[in-house]
Design a binder for these strands. Sequence first.
DNA 1: GTTGAGCGTT
Length: 301
Amino acid sequence: MSELYIRVAEDENEEPMEIPSEDDGTVLLSSVAAQFPGACGLRYRNPESQCMRGVRLVEGVLHAPENDWGSLVYVVNYPKGEKLKMEEIDAASAVKVKRGFQKTSDLIVLGLPWKTTEQDLKDYFSTFGEVIMVQVKRQTNGNSKGFGFVRFADYETQTKVIAQRHMIDGRWCDCKHPNSKMCPDEPMRSRKIFVGRCTEDMTPDELRQYFMQYGEVTDVFIPKPFRAFAFVTFADDQVAQALCGEDLIIKGISVHISNAEPKHNNSRQMMDRGRFGVCPLGRQRGTKRPGGGMMRSRRVC
DNA sequence: GTTGAGCGTT
Protein backbone atom coordinates (compact mmCIF):
# COMPACT_ATOMS: atom_id res chain seq x y z
CA MET A 1 0.00 0.00 0.00
CA SER A 2 2.37 2.71 1.14
CA GLU A 3 5.86 3.35 -0.08
CA LEU A 4 8.67 1.30 1.25
CA TYR A 5 10.66 4.35 2.22
CA ILE A 6 9.83 7.85 3.34
CA ARG A 7 12.03 10.85 2.83
CA VAL A 8 13.41 12.44 5.95
CA ALA A 9 15.74 15.38 6.40
CA GLU A 10 17.20 17.26 9.30
CA ASP A 11 16.13 20.53 7.82
CA GLU A 12 13.97 21.60 4.95
CA ASN A 13 16.93 22.67 2.92
CA GLU A 14 18.88 19.51 3.55
CA GLU A 15 19.07 16.57 1.24
CA PRO A 16 16.58 13.98 2.48
CA MET A 17 17.47 10.46 3.48
CA GLU A 18 15.21 7.50 2.85
CA ILE A 19 13.94 5.73 5.93
CA PRO A 20 12.23 2.33 5.68
CA SER A 21 8.59 1.96 6.66
CA GLU A 22 6.99 -1.09 8.22
CA ASP A 23 4.65 -3.55 6.52
CA ASP A 24 1.59 -1.77 7.88
CA GLY A 25 2.75 1.55 6.44
CA THR A 26 3.95 3.04 9.71
CA VAL A 27 7.49 4.16 10.42
CA LEU A 28 9.26 3.36 13.63
CA LEU A 29 10.76 6.29 15.48
CA SER A 30 13.73 4.04 16.10
CA SER A 31 14.26 3.80 12.34
CA VAL A 32 14.42 7.56 12.18
CA ALA A 33 16.63 7.79 15.24
CA ALA A 34 19.01 5.27 13.72
CA GLN A 35 19.89 7.85 11.09
CA PHE A 36 19.20 10.96 13.13
CA PRO A 37 20.38 10.28 16.67
CA GLY A 38 18.30 12.07 19.26
CA ALA A 39 15.25 12.42 17.02
CA CYS A 40 11.96 12.47 18.90
CA GLY A 41 9.49 12.86 16.06
CA LEU A 42 8.75 14.12 12.58
CA ARG A 43 6.99 17.08 11.08
CA TYR A 44 6.20 18.20 7.57
CA ARG A 45 4.96 21.24 5.73
CA ASN A 46 1.33 20.96 4.81
CA PRO A 47 1.11 21.86 1.12
CA GLU A 48 -2.34 23.31 1.70
CA SER A 49 -1.67 25.68 4.55
CA GLN A 50 2.12 25.94 4.21
CA CYS A 51 2.26 25.37 7.94
CA MET A 52 4.35 22.76 9.64
CA ARG A 53 2.42 19.78 10.94
CA GLY A 54 3.43 17.15 13.37
CA VAL A 55 3.34 13.48 12.51
CA ARG A 56 1.26 11.33 14.84
CA LEU A 57 3.45 9.36 17.18
CA VAL A 58 2.05 6.52 19.27
CA GLU A 59 4.34 4.43 21.38
CA GLY A 60 7.33 4.82 19.16
CA VAL A 61 5.35 4.35 15.96
CA LEU A 62 4.93 7.15 13.44
CA HIS A 63 1.69 7.16 11.52
CA ALA A 64 1.33 8.52 8.01
CA PRO A 65 -0.85 11.60 7.71
CA GLU A 66 -4.04 10.66 5.83
CA ASN A 67 -2.66 7.11 5.80
CA ASP A 68 -0.24 8.02 3.07
CA TRP A 69 3.28 9.34 3.45
CA GLY A 70 3.22 10.64 -0.10
CA SER A 71 6.34 12.16 -1.51
CA LEU A 72 6.71 14.86 1.11
CA VAL A 73 9.97 15.46 2.88
CA TYR A 74 9.62 14.95 6.60
CA VAL A 75 11.71 16.98 8.96
CA VAL A 76 13.24 15.54 12.09
CA ASN A 77 12.15 16.85 15.46
CA TYR A 78 14.63 17.04 18.28
CA PRO A 79 13.95 17.65 21.93
CA LYS A 80 13.94 21.33 22.76
CA GLY A 81 17.44 22.65 23.14
CA GLU A 82 18.83 19.68 21.33
CA LYS A 83 17.58 21.09 18.07
CA LEU A 84 19.23 24.40 18.58
CA LYS A 85 22.41 22.57 19.23
CA MET A 86 22.20 20.78 15.92
CA GLU A 87 21.52 23.99 14.08
CA GLU A 88 24.39 25.66 15.74
CA ILE A 89 26.66 22.84 14.74
CA ASP A 90 25.46 23.05 11.14
CA ALA A 91 25.87 26.77 10.98
CA ALA A 92 29.19 26.70 12.70
CA SER A 93 30.54 24.00 10.44
CA ALA A 94 29.30 25.83 7.38
CA VAL A 95 31.24 28.83 8.49
CA LYS A 96 34.21 26.71 9.36
CA VAL A 97 34.34 25.06 5.96
CA LYS A 98 34.62 28.41 4.31
CA ARG A 99 36.96 29.64 6.94
CA GLY A 100 39.40 27.08 5.71
CA PHE A 101 39.82 29.25 2.65
CA GLN A 102 40.09 32.50 4.52
CA LYS A 103 43.46 33.95 3.93
CA THR A 104 45.24 35.67 6.73
CA SER A 105 46.53 39.17 6.27
CA ASP A 106 49.24 41.31 7.75
CA LEU A 107 48.20 43.08 10.89
CA ILE A 108 49.64 46.35 12.01
CA VAL A 109 50.82 46.42 15.62
CA LEU A 110 50.46 49.89 17.08
CA GLY A 111 51.98 51.25 20.21
CA LEU A 112 55.13 49.17 20.48
CA PRO A 113 57.76 50.23 22.98
CA TRP A 114 60.88 51.63 21.32
CA LYS A 115 62.90 48.76 22.64
CA THR A 116 60.73 45.96 21.29
CA THR A 117 62.47 43.81 18.71
CA GLU A 118 61.13 41.46 16.10
CA GLN A 119 62.19 38.56 18.25
CA ASP A 120 60.16 40.02 21.11
CA LEU A 121 57.18 40.31 18.82
CA LYS A 122 57.54 36.78 17.61
CA ASP A 123 57.90 35.43 21.10
CA TYR A 124 54.82 37.26 22.26
CA PHE A 125 52.50 36.47 19.36
CA SER A 126 53.57 32.85 19.17
CA THR A 127 51.56 32.27 22.30
CA PHE A 128 48.43 32.83 20.17
CA GLY A 129 49.35 30.66 17.23
CA GLU A 130 51.88 30.11 14.51
CA VAL A 131 53.52 33.34 13.45
CA ILE A 132 54.74 33.50 9.87
CA MET A 133 56.01 37.08 9.76
CA VAL A 134 56.94 39.88 12.10
CA GLN A 135 58.36 43.28 11.37
CA VAL A 136 59.32 46.27 13.43
CA LYS A 137 59.42 49.45 11.41
CA ARG A 138 62.55 51.50 12.01
CA GLN A 139 64.05 54.73 10.91
CA THR A 140 67.36 54.86 9.10
CA ASN A 141 69.16 55.25 12.36
CA GLY A 142 67.70 51.99 13.48
CA ASN A 143 65.28 53.39 15.97
CA SER A 144 61.89 51.81 16.12
CA LYS A 145 59.00 53.81 14.79
CA GLY A 146 56.87 52.24 17.46
CA PHE A 147 54.84 50.03 15.21
CA GLY A 148 55.24 46.86 13.27
CA PHE A 149 53.46 44.10 11.46
CA VAL A 150 52.61 40.52 12.18
CA ARG A 151 51.08 37.72 10.17
CA PHE A 152 49.67 34.47 11.43
CA ALA A 153 49.26 31.12 9.77
CA ASP A 154 45.65 30.69 10.80
CA TYR A 155 42.74 33.00 10.39
CA GLU A 156 41.35 31.97 13.76
CA THR A 157 44.51 33.19 15.40
CA GLN A 158 44.32 36.46 13.56
CA THR A 159 40.73 36.98 14.65
CA LYS A 160 41.62 36.29 18.24
CA VAL A 161 44.55 38.66 18.19
CA ILE A 162 42.55 41.52 16.69
CA ALA A 163 39.86 41.07 19.28
CA GLN A 164 42.00 42.04 22.23
CA ARG A 165 44.61 44.48 23.43
CA HIS A 166 48.13 43.33 23.99
CA MET A 167 50.60 44.07 26.74
CA ILE A 168 53.95 44.01 25.01
CA ASP A 169 57.08 44.91 26.94
CA GLY A 170 55.06 47.05 29.31
CA ARG A 171 52.83 48.91 26.88
CA TRP A 172 49.34 48.29 25.63
CA CYS A 173 49.33 47.66 21.92
CA ASP A 174 46.61 47.23 19.32
CA CYS A 175 46.54 44.92 16.34
CA LYS A 176 44.43 46.04 13.41
CA HIS A 177 43.97 45.60 9.72
CA PRO A 178 46.35 48.09 8.15
CA ASN A 179 44.95 50.97 6.18
CA SER A 180 47.76 51.02 3.71
CA LYS A 181 47.15 49.97 0.17
CA MET A 182 50.23 47.90 -0.01
CA CYS A 183 48.51 44.59 0.16
CA PRO A 184 44.77 44.54 -0.15
CA ASP A 185 44.69 40.80 0.09
CA GLU A 186 41.23 41.06 1.54
CA PRO A 187 39.01 41.88 -1.40
CA MET A 188 36.04 43.25 0.50
CA ARG A 189 34.62 41.75 3.57
CA SER A 190 31.19 43.02 4.18
CA ARG A 191 29.30 42.07 7.28
CA LYS A 192 26.10 42.67 5.40
CA ILE A 193 24.35 40.19 3.16
CA PHE A 194 21.71 40.66 0.51
CA VAL A 195 18.71 38.37 0.98
CA GLY A 196 16.93 37.94 -2.33
CA ARG A 197 13.53 36.43 -3.09
CA CYS A 198 12.05 37.51 0.21
CA THR A 199 8.30 37.38 0.59
CA GLU A 200 6.25 40.18 2.01
CA ASP A 201 5.23 38.25 5.10
CA MET A 202 8.79 37.94 6.35
CA THR A 203 9.19 40.32 9.23
CA PRO A 204 12.48 41.82 10.37
CA ASP A 205 12.12 39.86 13.57
CA GLU A 206 11.64 36.59 11.75
CA LEU A 207 14.69 37.23 9.63
CA ARG A 208 16.68 38.04 12.72
CA GLN A 209 15.49 34.90 14.43
CA TYR A 210 16.40 32.82 11.43
CA PHE A 211 19.86 34.25 10.82
CA MET A 212 20.77 34.22 14.50
CA GLN A 213 21.68 30.57 14.12
CA TYR A 214 24.67 31.56 12.02
CA GLY A 215 25.98 34.29 14.23
CA GLU A 216 25.18 37.52 16.00
CA VAL A 217 22.89 39.68 13.90
CA THR A 218 23.43 43.40 14.35
CA ASP A 219 20.90 44.73 11.86
CA VAL A 220 18.01 43.70 9.67
CA PHE A 221 16.75 46.07 7.02
CA ILE A 222 13.74 45.50 4.79
CA PRO A 223 13.24 48.27 2.25
CA LYS A 224 9.76 49.68 2.06
CA PRO A 225 7.70 49.55 0.02
CA PHE A 226 8.18 45.82 -0.42
CA ARG A 227 10.88 44.98 -2.94
CA ALA A 228 11.41 41.26 -2.32
CA PHE A 229 14.79 41.61 -0.71
CA ALA A 230 16.33 42.47 2.61
CA PHE A 231 19.68 43.17 4.18
CA VAL A 232 21.03 41.37 7.20
CA THR A 233 24.18 42.50 8.95
CA PHE A 234 26.22 40.23 11.17
CA ALA A 235 28.70 41.14 13.83
CA ASP A 236 31.24 38.92 12.14
CA ASP A 237 32.13 39.40 8.49
CA GLN A 238 33.14 35.76 8.25
CA VAL A 239 29.61 34.66 8.97
CA ALA A 240 28.26 36.97 6.29
CA GLN A 241 30.79 35.80 3.76
CA ALA A 242 30.22 32.16 4.58
CA LEU A 243 26.55 32.48 3.72
CA CYS A 244 27.07 34.19 0.40
CA GLY A 245 25.97 32.06 -2.51
CA GLU A 246 23.72 29.90 -0.36
CA ASP A 247 20.08 29.22 -0.99
CA LEU A 248 18.36 29.11 2.37
CA ILE A 249 14.83 28.12 3.22
CA ILE A 250 12.95 30.64 5.33
CA LYS A 251 9.33 29.90 6.10
CA GLY A 252 9.35 27.40 3.28
CA ILE A 253 10.65 29.97 0.82
CA SER A 254 14.01 29.65 -0.86
CA VAL A 255 15.89 32.88 -0.50
CA HIS A 256 19.21 33.59 -2.14
CA ILE A 257 22.10 35.08 -0.23
CA SER A 258 24.66 37.24 -1.89
CA ASN A 259 27.05 39.97 -1.00
CA ALA A 260 25.45 43.28 -0.18
CA GLU A 261 27.22 45.38 -2.73
CA PRO A 262 27.87 48.79 -1.33
CA LYS A 263 25.98 51.24 -3.45
CA HIS A 264 27.75 54.04 -5.25
CA ASN A 265 27.06 56.45 -2.42
CA ASN A 266 28.90 54.15 -0.06
CA SER A 267 28.34 56.20 3.00
CA ARG A 268 28.63 53.88 5.91
CA GLN A 269 30.01 50.57 4.75
CA MET A 270 33.43 52.03 4.21
CA MET A 271 33.42 54.55 6.99
CA ASP A 272 32.15 51.95 9.41
CA ARG A 273 35.53 50.54 10.04
CA GLY A 274 38.38 52.23 8.35
CA ARG A 275 39.90 49.02 7.21
CA PHE A 276 40.97 47.30 4.06
CA GLY A 277 42.67 50.38 2.89
CA VAL A 278 39.88 52.13 1.11
CA CYS A 279 39.59 55.81 1.78
CA PRO A 280 36.21 56.94 0.45
CA LEU A 281 37.44 60.43 -0.16
CA GLY A 282 40.69 59.47 -1.72
CA ARG A 283 44.01 59.72 -0.01
CA GLN A 284 43.80 61.78 3.05
CA ARG A 285 46.89 60.76 4.82
CA GLY A 286 50.04 62.67 4.22
CA THR A 287 51.19 61.55 0.84
CA LYS A 288 53.96 63.74 -0.25
CA ARG A 289 54.73 62.88 -3.79
CA PRO A 290 57.37 65.31 -5.01
CA GLY A 291 56.49 65.23 -8.68
CA GLY A 292 52.80 65.20 -8.00
CA GLY A 293 52.71 62.08 -10.10
CA MET A 294 49.81 59.75 -9.61
CA MET A 295 50.70 56.51 -8.01
CA ARG A 296 48.48 53.59 -8.82
CA SER A 297 46.75 52.61 -5.65
CA ARG A 298 45.05 49.31 -6.36
CA ARG A 299 47.65 46.67 -6.40
CA VAL A 300 47.40 43.00 -6.02
CA CYS A 301 50.28 41.45 -4.31
C1' DG B 1 70.57 60.84 22.30
C1' DT B 2 64.04 63.27 21.62
C1' DT B 3 58.44 60.93 20.58
C1' DG B 4 53.28 58.04 21.51
C1' DA B 5 49.02 58.80 17.11
C1' DG B 6 49.52 56.40 13.36
C1' DC B 7 49.94 52.81 8.58
C1' DG B 8 54.52 49.10 5.78
C1' DT B 9 62.05 52.66 2.30
C1' DT B 10 64.01 48.22 -0.55
